[in-house]
Design a protein around this nucleic acid. Structure first.
Length: 433
DNA sequence: TCTGGGGTCCTAGGACCC
DNA sequence: TCTGGGGTCCTAGGACCC
């Protein structure tokens, strides 16, 4: 029998708020919001907050009065907690099928083919309801589930499930009976893959709903926009273009950035900020056992001001793939110097590491008495032989003093090398000083 | 006054090489 | 020195996602 695509999208309701409620049930029934990193914006709202008119992404200072009026509970975000709850939800889903793609912290795609008994439309919905009830019982997190033959249609199904009383949290669009109805109810700007820009252009062309978008001329919009939009249209027509990704692709970049409380103008302050971000980025890199080949520094003026935004950036190749803090800071400063010009009030800065590759976990060391240089050279030769074709980056010389080893020095080679004597020269020069 | 942070993919244009 | 097409790589910018 041919394998069908049957995607189920499991989407946690108001995820961050729901996580907070698991640990404080008294929050149930209240207006609850969770704030973004700097406590700047509202990024999660309880149903009560939505009903009260609190807008997604609204800055706190604009919503404060409304929140006060509703005696709202306001939380700073706690990503350690949300990450842990996300893992529990994922484990629950994996009890139903091994084919689970963790799409984001609060969403997962499942392959439901083979998951249900008869395979008919009715039993798919039953499976969905069973998953929903189990997740709520095991983790305390309420979810909605959309079932369809493409990921984009599963997104449509979830959007409908969230607003339909009748659906009881599960909408199945594999059965085409309600497909047209569902597509008609989803506005074009709410379709997955349609952002503000495409939405504006589509609406200007009279395309207002997901149903309209499904019926549009594919080559025309491929030309006017991109393959991304083309793919969205095909997916709405039931042609699956986005497969389930069971093993996450390796990470390609890593960013550390912050907005400044007050605008920053001086190069000295920016150098300090950028050095801090580079340090944090290096820590993340090492935690994931990666090294970076290049580094990007970016700045931005206030994007909410009337003036046009000035957002320069510069990319600098690292002399060799590294996660070494001193290298990252040096290159970050170099990149900053390239883009800095006085007279701008910057509101944001960041460091992005790109060209990430796994760090080679190769190490060899050997300590010998330093009394005789020839014995030292002999030891180094033996290490060199053991290293084979590995290129080296670090070298150290040891000295035994009163029963304890001490590093005489720990110097880096200026470039990749297979030559131990190059490292040795560096080390000896360093010790002489 | 106060407006998040961290990702991916696509496209167009230029440099360079054969 | 001029001619041309085609390929790759890099960069910057745009668009989208959570």
């Amino acid at each position: 029998m041919r394998r069908r695509n049957i995607f189920a999208l499991v989407d946690c309701n108001n995820f961050y708020v729901s996580c907070e409620r698991v640990f404080d049930p008294k929050l149930t029934g209240r207006v609850v919001v969770v704030l973004s990193n700097n406590d700047g914006c509202i990024i999660s709202r309880s149903a009560e907050a939505k009903a009260a008119g609190v807008k997604m992404g609204a800055p706190l200072f604009q919503a404060q009065a409304l929140l006060d009026a509703h005696d709202a509970a306001i939380f700073s975000s706690n990503y350690a907690l949300y990450g842990d709850m996300s893992r529990r939800v994922a484990e629950t889903l994996e009890a139903f099928t091994p084919e689970v793609e963790l799409y984001s912290i609060d969403e997962a795609f499942l392959n439901l083919d083979g998951c249900s008994g008869g395979g008919g439309a009715e039993s798919l919905s039953d499976t969905g309801r069973k998953i929903r009830a189990t997740v709520e019982r095991w983790t305390g997190i309420p979810v909605c589930i959309g079932i369809a033959e493409t990921k984009t249609l599963a997104k449509v199904a979830v959007a409908v499930a969230k607003h339909s009383q009748k659906a009881r949290g599960v909408v199945n669009l594999v059965d085409p009976t309600y497909l047209k109805q569902a597509l008609e109810r989803v506005k074009v700007e709410d379709v997955w893959g349609i952002g503000p820009n495409y939405a504006r252009r589509l609406k200007a062309a009279g395309i207002k709903t997901a149903l309209d978008l499904r019926a549009t001329d594919v080559p025309l919009w491929r030309r006017r926009a991109s393959v991304m939009l083309e793919r969205v249209i095909y997916e709405l027509r039931g042609v699956s273009c986005l497969p389930l990704e069971l093993c996450p692709p390796p990470r390609r970049s890593l960013t550390v950035s912050r907005s400044f409380g007050a605008p920053v103008e001086s190069l000295a302050d920016l150098r300090e900020a950028v050095a801090f971000y580079a340090t944090r980025a290096g820590e993340k890199l090492r935690r994931r056992n990666l090294v970076a080949n290049a580094l990007v520094v970016f700045l931005s003026t206030n994007r909410f001001a009337d003036a046009p935004v000035y957002a320069p950036s510069a990319t600098v190749s690292l002399p060799c793939a590294t996660s070494y803090t001193a290298d990252l800071i040096r290159c970050a400063h170099h990149a900053l110097d390239k883009i800095y010009s006085a007279g701008h009030r910057f509101k944001k800065a960041g460091v992005m590491l790109v060209g990430l590759v796994p760090a080679a976990p190769v190490q060899q060391s050997m300590f010998v008495s330093t009394e005789r240089a020839d014995r030292l050279m002999h030891a180094l030769d033996r290490i060199n032989a053991r290293m084979g074709s590995h290129t080296l980056r670090y070298g150290a010389l040891g000295l035994k003093q009163r029963g304890r080893w001490q590093a005489l020095c720990d110097r880096r080679s200026p470039r990749f090398t297979t030559r131990w004597d190059e490292l040795l020269t560096l080390n000896l020069r360093a010790t002489r000083g």
